[in-house]
Design a protein around this nucleic acid. Structure first.
Lengths: 157, 157
DNA sequence: CGTGAAAACGTGACGCA
DNA sequence: TGCGTCACGTTTTCACG
């Protein structure tokens, strides 16, 4: 289920195009790739079924939504046991400010990517939702100056 | 241009639905939200023009693409001057292993989210693309045990 | 994997509040 | 000004070769 999937050049070409615009029509896709539209449909359906394509997400601009400040929070959860970290993860995921959450190796157990309105909002978030929790031993806040998305994620070699 | 945009409940409802599936048809959208399809079309076009919607991205499963191991690299670039960090950012963005790149406050200048095949691949990446560079003073590698996406990014209030 | 036809959809013009 | 109705051209989608 989590194993790698064989992708031929047509699949890769389709994936590359859809990463630029996930709403490209199968007709345009077909013209670009050099196969029939129905073939594109089949390919995409197969990629979807095999789990390579997880979905189509909208890319939004946080600043336009009144969340012009982003930060990464490095969080230590102590003691780091299942009965504590389960609820912790769920609470963080439910915060409207959370964008992504990572469970990591290293001195910090979690990294939380948040988007807030301003520094006052960030302070409130850190104090009320993190440091006030008993299981949160430490929070380190790093502001995001700038961020970049990187090239399409494609198989090695 | 980068100012917040006023969004009424219809806009918010549309955005929430499109975040789950950016390929939802305007008809389905309209039925769900309770307006006419053409209105949905107008709303989405406006959201696109105003920059709230940046695009439609495909969500892919890195593991299925032969990149089952993810890591965050905390990188210090010294000296931290424009003529060095510009090329650094561009090189990192061009790496096929890179997923995202952040310029941060704090002791580490950059955080790089990478997806690789295995630990050997990660070692190669760190040694050949980061620590071997003169401007890279230090790299701290943190493996990703697990990650979560969080609820749809929506305006406060 | 391509063809072709039927159904569904996107999109603009127009009229109404 | 913004929304709904309608209609046309396009796209999706499916059965079949």
């Amino acid at each position: 289920m989590s194993d790698s999937v064989v992708l031929d050049p047509v699949d890769l070409h389709i994936l590359r195009l859809l990463q630029n615009d996930a709403r490209t029509t199968y007709r345009d896709l077909a013209a670009e790739v050099g196969v029939a539209p129905s073939t594109c449909l089949d390919r995409v359906a197969r990629l979807r079924r095999s789990g390579v394509i997880l979905g189509n997400a909208l890319r939004l601009d946080p600043a336009k939504l009144g969340r012009g400040l982003e930060a990464l929070l490095l969080v230590q959860v102590r003691p780091h046991r299942r009965e504590l970290i389960g609820p912790f993860v769920e609470r963080v995921r439910a915060l409207p400010e959370s964008r992504a959450l990572f469970h990591l190796t290293g001195p910090d157990d979690y990294l939380v990517h948040v988007a807030v309105a301003d520094t006052a909002d960030l302070q409130r978030l850190v104090l009320d939702e993190f440091t006030s929790r008993r299981e949160v031993a430490r929070v380190e806040t790093r502001l995001v100056f700038q961020q970049w998305e990187c090239g399409p994620l494609l198989p090695p070699g």
